[in-house]
């Protein structure tokens, strides 16, 4: 069974799908960290909020697409409030304080979700368009999962274009290289950072809303994805789009195939991978700064 090409192909698609969710999450976290040395441990909480907001909009409107459109915007607004009230003040704080405050936010988010939606696991139904499965190499595969893969690729293409081909992209890349120097050229880096932070929150929310139709929507879904996301960021290298893509693919595949081929080691596969990568390249695969 393990050498059956169809089986491998299906698992590859599963891995890709997880990788795309991880990519949506890690790219924001990574670029935010690279641009301003800010560690946002509550990034997973934004993902969870995306799922719950999506669920809430779905329950009230009955439309998956409206939920997918509005949930990320809701998460972005929450992120903006965090930015103005907390994160702005923490900008120059030592890392330990940033970690403590954003770690605290995880618990706040968890209890807020429990109070509003309870402890039970829920899910967002996939829309009718995706009710049909597609047949690939004689195997049935849910078309919604292909949609997730397509969405991830589309976001990557857009981000790549913005980062590599536009002026705002140049400012962001330069800001990751050397913030002070960008400032000395008369460019308001804080404003650029705020924009990146908002986009990062939006993508985390999008990722959560999309995932809500595949994974159970429940309190604690933030922690499991946060750890995977942090590993992606560490493996890929801080601050780079390329790192987020490659890191997501590696971790998504390792997690998926690890559970299939080495179920007894499933929980350590990705950590083992991380250790190997860090031994060879301590700064991650594509560090934007000298480690």
């Amino acid at each position: 069974m393990f050498t059956d090409p169809t089986f491998l192909f299906i698992q590859t698609l599963n891995g890709l799908q997880l990788a795309m969710l991880l990519f949506l999450l890690s790219v924001g976290l990574s670029v935010i960290f690279g641009l301003m040395n800010f560690i946002n441990l509550a990034h997973g909480t934004l993902y969870m909020l995306g799922a719950y907001f999506g669920l809430w909009v779905y329950v009230n409107t009955g439309s998956f697409w409206v939920a997918l459109a509005l949930a990320p915007i809701g998460v972005m607004v929450v992120g903006m409030v965090f930015y103005v009230t907390l994160i702005k003040r923490l900008r120059t704080a030592p890392p330990l304080k940033q970690v403590l405050v954003t770690f605290g936010l995880i618990f706040v988010g968890l209890d807020a979700v429990r109070m509003s939606w309870g402890n039970l696991s829920k899910s967002i139904p996939t829309p009718d368009v995706f009710s049909q499965s597609v047949t690939i190499f004689g195997e049935i595969y849910p078309s919604y999962r292909l949609f997730i893969i397509g969405l991830g690729v589309a976001v990557f293409v857009i981000l790549y274009f913005v980062l590599e081909r536009t002026r705002i992209g140049s400012v962001i890349r330069a800001g990751v290289d050397d913030r002070d120097m960008v400032s000395c050229l008369g460019i308001n880096v804080d404003l650029a950072f705020f924009g990146v932070f908002c986009i990062g929150c939006y993508l985390a929310g999008l990722s959560g809303a999309v995932a809500g139709a595949v994974f159970p929507v429940e309190p604690g879904m933030d922690m499991s994805i946060l750890i995977l996301t942090l590993i992606v960021v560490v493996v890929g290298g801080l601050g780079s789009l390329k790192g987020a893509v490659v890191g997501s693919l590696m971790i998504g595949m390792a997690e998926t195939f690890g559970q299939v081929f080495l179920p007894q080691f499933a929980s350590v596969t990705i950590y083992a991978l991380m250790v190997v990568v860090l031994l060879v390249r301590p700064g991650g695969l594509f560090p934007t700064r000298a480690a």
């Binding site: 050397d178 960008v182 400032s183 008369g186």
Partner: peptide, 21 residues
């Protein structure tokens, strides 16, 4: 950034070239 926008340009000792650009 506000100081620079008044018309002051700075060439630092470290040169401050952005390697990613």
């Amino acid at each position: 950034y506000q100081i620079a926008s008044l018309g002051i340009a700075y060439v630092p000792e470290t040169r401050g070239i952005f390697p990613s650009l």
